[in-house]
Design a protein around this nucleic acid. Structure first.
Length: 980
RNA sequence: GCCUGGGUGGCGGAAUGGUAUACGCGAAGGACUUAAAAUCCUUUGCCCGCAAGGGCUUGUGGGUCCGAGUCCCACCCCAGGCACCA
C-alpha cells in the first residue's frame, strides 16, 4: 500500500494548535535549532538578524511588538533556510522613563515591578514562535550589562566626548520636579496641568556633533529605508554659509601696540595690513621695530618698547609669536592695566616644535599674577595648522595666564599671512553672525542676538537700558521652547507678529558691506544653539525678520543682491558649514537608570569612576519618585554619593543623575554575541590594542569580528532619528577608540509600519488594545502571525480587524486538511504554479512584502486543490515556503505526517527553475483605440502575425474595425492594440 | 509652514506604462445536516440590458502617450515626523 492511500484510510485528526505549539516550543529548545554556532558560523556563514528589543511593559506583550517581531522572524527563518547561520537574539530594554512612570503610577518599586513583568513578558514572547537564540538574552537593567554602559561613559569622558554644560530642563513649579519631554503636553505638566518653565542645570553631554559630517556622509551608502535616511539628513541639517563679523560702532580702541616676533619686522606678515585697517578706523597704531631681531635679548626689546610707546588703560597690545613673550614681560612691568591683550601664535616655554629655542637670552620665568592683573581682557589665538609653535605650548600659555583660547585655521600657518582677519576681529569688538545668504548682506538693517548670548554682558557699560534688557533676558530664559514659538505667533492669525524683543540702546553695529550703523536687538526668535547665536536681519528677504521689523517698525532695505562669494571675501567673512544637530544630553534627574559613573572632587574636579570599580550599582531607594528638587532621588542616599576622589583620595561626591535610556539601547547589539559566554565567564574580554586600566571591554573581540555588523535590523520608524543616531554615534566612537574596525552598525535597516485598530491608534484610553494571548489561545500563534503579516505591506503597517482573522484560520485549516488527505508520490504535479510561487514568495520575503507572499501561497493551495491530485514534491515545496510564516503547523506536517527526521526550519529553501515558470498559453487582450474588445488565447510566445490574425478574426473586434488599422501595437504575450 | 508616506469595491488590500479591483473578509444563493456551527460550490465594482454586449470607475482638475492607478503639472484630503535652524 502506498503512503498516500495509507493516509487516506486514516481518519483525519483535527489540528490541536495549543498542544502542537507547546510541543514544538519544547522540542526546538532541546534540539537547539535556533542556536547558531557563534564561534564557528556554519553553512553560508553568519547572518545577524536583529529587531529592536522592547521595553517590557507590565501590561505584557503588545500586539504592535509582536507585529515587529514576527516580521523580523520571518526574514530570519527565510535566511536560515537559505543556508545561513542565523543569529536572532532577544532582550529587554527595561530602564527608563516608561518603566519608572508606570512604577510610580501603580506605586510599586521598579525593581519589583520588573521582576514580575520580565517573567511574564518572556513567557508571552516565547509563545509567538520566533526563532530566538535564548542563550544570549540580556536585560539593560542587569548590573552585568549596565556595568558596560557605564564603562562606555567613562571612555566617552576619557576621549573628550563627554562634557558638562548648562542646559535647560522642563520644570514644573507646582510638582517641583524635572519633567521628561514626553511628560510635557502642550507646554503643560502632564500631571497637574501647570505651565512648565525652563530651568538651567549643569548636565552631561556627549559630543555627537563631532560626528555630524560622518553621520551624514555614510547615509549615502548604508542600505536603509529611504524615509529614515531623509529624516536623518533633516535632523543633521547641514547648511553652508558664511560667518561674518559685524563690528560694534566705537569699539575701536584709541591706541594699539603691535609687537612682531623672532626675525620679524613691522613690514612683514600681517602687520602692515593690520596697521592700515586699524588706522582706517581712526586708531593710533604703534608698530615698533624690536632691536636685534635675529639675536634678540628680551630685556632690551622690552626697554625699547617702553621707552618709545605710551601705554594707558585704552591701549590694546598685540603680540605675535616671540613678540608675545615681550608682551608678557611688558605687562609684568606696567603700572596700570591695558584694555586688552591679544596673543597670536604665542607660547611660554622655550621650545619650537620639539627643539629648544637656540637663544637663551630670554627669561622663561613669568609672574602670572602680575600679568593677569595688567592684561585686561586676554585673547589667545592658536592656529590649528601651526608648524612653528606646537599647539600644546600655546595651551601651556593659556594655562599660565588664563583668558580665552581661540582655535583657527590661519591664512598661512603660524598666522604668517599678509592678512589675518581673526587677528583684526580680536582687536575690535565685534559680533559674528552665521548666514546662508551672504548675498543679502547689503539688505541687513539690524542685528539680533539670542537672549542667552553671553557676550551681551561685555557691552553692559554701553547699554543705556540695561535693566530693561536684563528683564527681557530673564523672562526669555524662563519660557519653554514651546511658549517661545506659540507666543511668537499671533494667536488669531498665526502670523509671526507676536514676536518679542528689546533693543540694546546706545550700541550700534556696523554693516561691513556699506559701513552703515545698524541697531542691535535681543529677541528670542533667535536661537543660541544654532550658528553663532546672532543673526544679521534682512527683512527684505527673510520672513521672520520681516515680521519682526514690521512689529518694531525697523527699516527695510531693498538693496540689490550681490555675489555671495565675492562679498564674503570682501568683508573678511569665513565660509562655514553649520549643522542643526545638537549634542546628546545624557543626564536624567531620575532614579531608574544607570548612575553616571563620575565623581566630583572639589580639588580635582570631575573624575571618572575607575574601571575596576564598575558597575556603580543603582541602590535600592525606597522612595524612588522624583524628589521635589531639581536633582535625582539618589541625592537622598548619603551612602551612595559620599565617596573618595579616585585621584587624590580626598572626600568627593558621586554624580547622582542617571543616564538617558537611549544610551542603554545604543550599544546592545554589540553585547548580544558575547552575552552568554560573558555570563558564564568564558570571555577574556581583553583587547590588546586598547589601553584601558582594566584591559576589559564590553564584548569579545573575536565574536564581534565574526558577527558584526548586523546584517538586517528591523524596527519602528519612530526610532528613525534618535535611537538610530545614537547607535551610529557609539559605533563610530568605538571605531575611533580602536575597539572595532567598522563604523556603521547596521548595513541594512528596514522600518516597519504602524499597526492600528479599526482606523485608530491603539491606546489604553481608547480601550482598543489587542492582547495577543487571547488570539493565540483561540487560533494559535501561526494564525495570528500570518494574519498580522497579511493585513498590509509590512513597511506600511496595517489595520487590525477581528473579522478578517478567520480567513487565515481557514487557510491553515485547508493546509492541514490537504496534508492529511491526498498526497500522491507519482510524477506530474503543477510545475508552472509551483515554480512561479517559489519565485514570488522568495522575492516577496526578500523585500518584506509578506502580504503578497501569503496571497501567492493561498493561490498556490487553491490551484493544488483544483487539481485532482496533489503531488508530494509540490506540497513539500509549499510547506517549506509556508514554514517561516507558520512555523508550528508546518513543522507538525513535515515531521509527523510527512515523517521527516529533521526540522522543516533547517531544510533548504526551494529553488525555482526559470524554464518552468512559463505558461503554455497566454490570454491576450485585444484593444481597438485603447478600448478592450476581446481577449484571445494564444500559445505562449506566439508571433505578431499569428496574434494579429487571430485578433482580427474575432467578431467583436471586427465590429470596431470598419477600416484596416493605421497602426498596430503589439506587446508579446501581453496585448494587441489597433489604432484607427 | 517644511519633510515623508498614503488616497483604488461594502471593508483590509493587489497591480515591471499593457485585461484595474489579485488574495482575504463581508454579503447573496445553493449543497451537506432534523437543525445550527463547520465545510464545500456559485455569484459579487457601479449603471443600462433577458442576453450578446455597451457605458462609467483608482481623491479633484489638467497634460504626455496607441494606452495612465502607475509618468508630468496644479490642487484637495488623511496619517506620521520636524518646526522661528538665519
Amino acid at each position: 500500500m502506498g503512503r498516500a492511500t495509507e493516509r487516506e484510510n486514516l481518519k483525519m485528526k483535527s489540528y490541536d494548535h495549543q498542544k502542537t505549539e507547546k510541543k514544538w516550543l519544547k522540542k526546538w529548545l532541546e534540539e537547539k535549532i535556533y542556536q547558531p554556532d557563534l564561534a564557528h558560523p556554519k553553512g553560508k556563514g553568519k547572518f545577524y538578524n536583529l529587531m529592536m528589543f522592547p521595553y517590557p511593559s507590565a501590561e505584557g506583550l503588545h500586539v504592535g511588538n509582536m507585529y515587529a517581531f514576527t516580521g523580523s522572524d520571518i526574514y530570519g527563518r527565510f535566511k536560515r533556510m537559505q543556508g545561513y547561520d542565523v543569529f536572532e537574539p532577544f532582550g529587554l530594554d527595561g530602564f527608563g522613563i516608561h518603566s519608572e512612570n508606570y512604577a510610580i503610577k501603580i506605586g510599586t518599586h521598579p525593581v519589583d515591578l520588573l521582576k514580575k513583568s520580565e517573567k511574564r513578558y518572556y513567557e508571552q514572547v516565547k509563545a509567538i514562535g520566533n526563532g530566538f537564540a535564548w542563550d544570549e538574552k540580556l536585560e539593560t537593567y542587569d548590573p552585568e550589562y549596565y556595568k558596560w554602559t557605564q564603562w562606555i561613559f567613562v571612555q566617552m569622558f576619557k576621549h573628550g566626548l563627554a562634557y558638562r554644560k548648562k542646559a535647560p530642563v522642563n520644570w514644573c513649579p507646582s510638582c517641583k520636579t524635572v519633567l521628561a519631554d514626553e511628560q510635557v503636553i502642550a507646554g503643560k505638566c502632564e500631571r497637574c496641568g501647570t505651565e512648565v518653565i525652563r530651568k538651567e542645570l549643569e548636565q552631561w553631554f556627549f559630543k555627537i556633533t563631532d560626528y555630524a559630517e560622518k553621520l551624514l556622509k555614510n547615509l549615502d551608502w548604508i542600505n536603509w529605508s529611504e524615509r529614515v535616511k531623509i529624516a536623518q539628513r533633516n535632523w543633521i541639517g547641514k547648511s553652508e554659509g558664511a560667518g561674518i563679523d559685524f563690528e560694534i560702532a566705537g569699539a575701536i580702541a584709541p591706541s594699539y601696540v603691535l609687537l612682531h616676533g623672532y626675525t620679524g619686522s613691522p613690514e612683514n606678515n600681517f602687520f602692515p595690513w593690520l596697521k592700515k585697517e586699524l588706522e582706517k578706523r581712526g586708531a593710533r597704531v604703534y608698530v615698533p621695530e624690536l632691536p636685534n631681531t635675529k639675536d634678540p635679548i628680551v630685556r632690551d626689546q622690552v626697554e625699547a618698547v617702553l621707552k618709545n610707546v605710551p601705554f594707558d588703560g585704552n591701549t590694546i597690545i598685540v603680540g605675535h609669536s616671540l613678540g608675545g613673550v615681550v608682551v608678557l614681560k611688558i605687562l609684568e612691568k606696567l603700572s596700570t592695566p591695558v584694555r586688552k591683550t591679544v596673543l597670536v601664535g604665542c607660547y611660554s616655554e622655550n621650545r619650537f616644535i620639539d627643539e629648544n629655542f637656540p637663544l637663551h637670552t630670554f627669561d622663561w620665568k613669568f609672574n602670572p599674577e602680575k600679568i593677569k592683573c595688567n592684561a585686561g581682557e586676554i585673547s589667545i589665538l592658536r592656529d590649528l595648522s601651526d608648524d612653528t609653535v606646537p599647539q600644546d605650548n600655546t595651551y601651556s600659555l593659556y594655562k599660565l595666564i588664563g583668558g580665552e583660547l581661540f582655535d583657527y585655521n590661519a591664512s598661512k600657518p603660524h598666522f604668517s599671512g599678509n592678512t589675518e582677519p581673526e587677528v583684526l576681529h580680536h582687536c575690535i569688538d565685534s559680533i559674528r553672525v552665521f548666514t546662508t545668504r551672504p548675498d543679502t548682506l547689503f539688505g541687513t538693517t539690524y542685528m539680533v542676538l539670542a537672549p542667552e548670548y553671553e557676550e551681551i554682558e561685555n557691552l553692559e557699560s554701553k547699554i543705556e537700558n540695561w535693566e530693561e534688557v536684563q528683564k527681557y533676558i530673564e523672562r526669555a530664559k524662563n519660557k519653554s521652547n514651546e511658549e517661545r514659538i506659540t507666543e511668537g505667533k499671533d494667536p488669531s492669525t498665526g502670523s509671526g507678529l507676536g514676536k518679542t524683543g528689546v533693543e540694546l540702546k546706545g550700541v550700534k553695529a556696523i554693516n561691513p558691506a556699506n559701513n552703515q550703523e545698524i541697531p542691535i536687538w535681543i529677541a528670542d526668535y533667535v536661537l543660541r544653539d544654532y550658528g553663532t547665536g546672532a543673526i544679521m536681519a534682512v527683512p527684505a528677504h527673510d520672513e521672520r525678520d520681516r515680521e519682526f521689523a514690521k512689529k518694531f517698525d525697523l527699516p527695510v532695505s531693498d538693496a540689490p543682491l550681490v555675489d555671495a562669494k565675492e562679498i564674503t571675501k570682501k568683508v573678511g567673512g569665513e565660509f562655514k558649514t553649520t549643522y542643526r544637530l545638537r549634542d546628546w544630553l545624557i543626564s536624567r534627574q531620575r532614579y531608574w537608570g544607570p548612575p553616571i559613573p563620575m565623581i566630583h572632587c572639589d580639588k580635582c574636579s570631575w573624575q571618572p569612576v575607575p574601571e575596576e570599580d564598575l558597575p556603580v550599582v543603582l541602590p535600592y531607594v525606597k522612595d524612588f519618585k522624583p524628589t521635589g528638587t531639581d536633582a535625582s532621588p539618589l541625592t537622598t542616599v548619603k551612602e551612595f554619593y559620599e565617596t573618595k576622589c579616585p585621584k587624590c583620595g580626598g572626600p568627593a561626591k558621586r554624580e547622582t543623575d542617571v543616564s538617558d535610556n537611549f544610551f542603554d539601547s545604543a550599544w546592545y547589539y554589540f553585547r548580544y554575541p558575547s552575552a552568554h559566554s560573558a555570563r558564564s565567564g568564558q570571555v577574556p574580554s581583553t583587547h590588546s590594542a586598547h589601553s584601558t586600566s582594566s584591559g576589559q571591554i564590553p564584548f569579545d573581540p573575536e565574536l564581534t569580528k565574526k558577527w558584526l555588523p548586523v546584517d538586517m535590523y528591523i524596527g519602528g520608524a519612530e526610532h528613525s532619528v534618535l535611537h538610530l543616531f545614537y547607535t551610529r554615534f557609539v559605533t563610530m566612537a568605538f571605531k575611533d577608540w580602536g575597539l572595532i574596525d567598522f563604523e556603521e552598525p547596521f548595513h541594512k535597516f528596514r522600518a516597519h509600519g504602524l499597526l492600528i485598530k479599526e482606523d485608530a491608534k491603539m491606546s489604553k484610553s481608547k480601550g482598543n488594545i489587542v492582547n495577543p494571548d487571547e488570539y493565540i489561545e483561540k487560533y494559535g500563534a501561526d494564525v495570528l502571525r500570518m494574519y498580522l503579516m497579511f493585513i498590509g505591506p509590512f513597511e506600511q503597517g496595517g489595520d487590525f480587524r477581528d473579522d478578517s482573522i478567520i480567513g487565515i484560520a481557514r487557510f491553515l485549516g485547508k493546509v492541514w486538511a490537504a496534508a492529511n488527505k491526498k498526497i500522491g508520490d507519482g510524477g506530474g504535479g503543477l510545475p508552472v504554479i509551483t515554480n512561479k510561487t517559489i519565485k514570488k514568495v522568495t522575492e516577496d520575503i526578500e523585500n518584506l512584502r509578506y502580504n503578497t507572499a501569503i496571497s501567492a501561497l493561498m493561490i498556490f493551495l487553491n490551484e493544488m486543490e483544483k487539481a485532482n491530485e496533489i503531488t508530494r514534491s509540490d506540497f513539500e515545496a509549499f510547506i517549506k515556503l509556508l514554514a517561516p510564516f507558520a512555523p508550528f503547523i508546518t513543522e507538525e506536517i513535515w515531521r509527523n505526517i510527512s515523517k521527516h527526521e529533521k526540522s522543516v526550519h533547517i531544510e533548504p529553501w526551494p529553488e525555482y527553475d526559470p524554464s518552468l515558470i512559463k505558461d503554455k498559453t497566454a490570454k491576450i487582450p485585444v484593444q481597438v483605440n485603447g478600448k478592450l474588445r476581446a481577449v484571445i488565447e494564444m500559445d505562449f510566445d506566439s508571433s505578431e502575425e499569428e496574434v494579429v490574425e487571430k485578433a482580427k478574426a474575432d467578431p467583436n473586434v471586427q465590429k470596431y474595425l470598419p477600416t484596416p488599422p493605421k497602426k498596430t501595437i503589439f506587446v508579446k504575450n501581453k496585448l494587441v492594440n489597433f489604432v484607427l
